[in-house]
Design a protein around this nucleic acid. Structure first.
Length: 208
DNA sequence: ATTTAGATCCTCT
DNA sequence: GAGGATCTAAATG
């Protein structure tokens, strides 16, 4: 069952942390659902956060879905790629969590064929190790912008069963650090709003 | 109508 | 680690 609205209607950094280890499920018209385990996220804190698209209360057509209530998707395009966010808190707040990396769990070979680039040399850990890459691999486009991820639809998030959640069970260390690619955001660039599993090879940057 | 900037990716040193 | 590819929304004239 998908995580319900209550999960998302909370402090954004807390939602971000709690998303680590959850399964992102993408159902397509054909074939099995694609499933990836969330291993890296970033929190974007709305109108006060210089790095957020909603900074200063900016309200353009592109960011409109970021003002939806928690539990909706905000998908935007950047440099010809797509990026997936999960909206948090209440309607008109404008906060969200960027999903930055997944560990493939189900239908990895389908993900591989969806990825462009040098496919023959693509390692498993390169399939979903970045916000644009995971959208390529999972077939996430602007068609999914604004979609309700708390329903059993084309895209949702669920808690894995006990057997699959061994990192959390085994207390793999969860790390917080500065967000990626937001150097323009002044003091906000350094805020520890990026969360990931230490040592996980599917995270988008070299671990340490 | 044109320019700019950006929550990126890939290939090559 | 650097540089180019690539695309669009938003800002600017």
């Amino acid at each position: 069952m998908p995580l319900d609205h209550d999960f998302y209607l909370r402090d954004t950094a807390a939602v971000a942390r709690d998303l680590l280890g959850m399964h992102l499920v993408r159902t397509l018209d054909e074939g099995l659902p694609l499933i990836g385990r969330i291993v890296e996220v970033e929190a974007y804190l709305g109108i006060e956060d210089r790095a957020a698209h909603t900074f200063g209360g900016r309200r353009t057509p592109r960011v409109e879905s970021m003002y939806l209530p928690g539990g909706h998707a905000y998908v935007y395009t950047l440099y010809g790629h797509h990026c997936l966010n999960l909206v948090t808190r209440g309607r008109d707040i404008g906060e969200a969590v960027l999903v930055r990396a997944l560990e493939p769990v189900v239908a990895m070979e389908v993900m591989r064929t969806r990825r462009r680039g040098r496919l023959t040399r693509l390692r498993d850990a390169d399939l979903c190790s970045g916000p644009g890459k995971l959208c390529q691999a999972m077939g996430i486009t602007r068609e999914l912008d604004g979609c309700d991820v708390t329903r059993l639809g084309p895209l949702y998030v669920e808690r894995p069963d006990r057997a699959a959640s061994h990192d959390v069970e085994m207390e793999v260390e969860m790390v917080a650090g500065p967000r990626v690619g937001v150097a323009y955001a002044g003091e906000w660039a350094e805020a520890p709003l990026r969360f990931y599993f230490r040592g996980n090879p599917h995270v988008s940057r070299p671990r340490r």
